[in-house]
Amino acid sequence: MQLRTNESIEAIASRLLALREGLRLSQQQFADALGISLRAAQNYERGARKLPAETLIEIARKFEIDPLWIMDGPEERPRSLGQVGLDQQTLSRAIGIVQRAVLETDANVDADQFANMVAAVYKFYMHNSSGAGAEDLIASFVAGYR
């Protein structure tokens, strides 16, 4: 299963670097704040390693940054959560639904497609608080990427 293209990984790495530098943190300080090793932080920032969803969520929480900006940009400067008004619990639920669907179906999606699916599920939850039907919604998206 491929979740991201090399180009997408490099773009995510570039945004992580911009975020860290904007926060005026060393790589070690950034890693410590996220509870990850220095080596992992360096690898994410260089694009040598894919950014796991758990780390993405922690970055969003810890630094109050829009996780969709990290995944999809397009601006050079980070968007804060306050700018977009994201609900962290709903976002975590949306990411989990998409991850499960992609893993269960072994779908081949890139970062843009993954981000679009997360955004669709997030919006669905925001308009339908029970979330009933979210799995069906994402199953229809994922079916197109097998």
Rank of each mutant, 00 (worst) to 15 (best):
S130I: 04
E135V: 10
A115N: 05
I57F: 07
Y44A: 07
I65G: 08
L68Q: 15
A134T: 04
E135L: 13
A139D: 13
P74L: 07
Q99H: 02
M71Y: 09
K62S: 09
I57R: 12
M71Q: 14
P78C: 08
I70Q: 08
L51P: 03
N108D: 00
S92I: 10
K50I: 11
R49P: 00
I97V: 14
Y125Q: 03
A139N: 14
A41G: 08
L81M: 12
Q89G: 09
A111I: 01
G133F: 01
D66H: 10
I57T: 12
G73N: 13
G47I: 09
A107V: 02
Y145V: 04
G144M: 10
R49K: 11
V102S: 01
Q88M: 11
F63E: 13
T55F: 08
L137C: 05
A101E: 04
Y125R: 06
R79L: 13
A41Q: 05
V118R: 05
L91D: 01
Y122N: 05
G96R: 15
R100P: 03
N128S: 11
S129Y: 02
A101P: 01
S140H: 11
R61E: 05
N128C: 00
G133D: 02
Y44C: 07
V118Q: 03
M71T: 09
A60R: 11
A115P: 00
D136A: 11
G131I: 03
T90S: 12
A48V: 14
F141H: 10
N128I: 01
S80L: 10
I97N: 03
G85H: 06
D106A: 03
Q88C: 00
E75W: 09
R100S: 12
V98T: 05
S130P: 00
F124G: 01
A111F: 01
G85W: 04
P67H: 05
G47A: 05
R46V: 07
A48E: 12
V121Q: 02
A115M: 07
A120T: 12
A53E: 15
Q42C: 02
R79T: 13
P67S: 06
I57H: 04
G47V: 09
A94Y: 08
D66T: 05
F114P: 02
W69A: 12
A48Q: 10
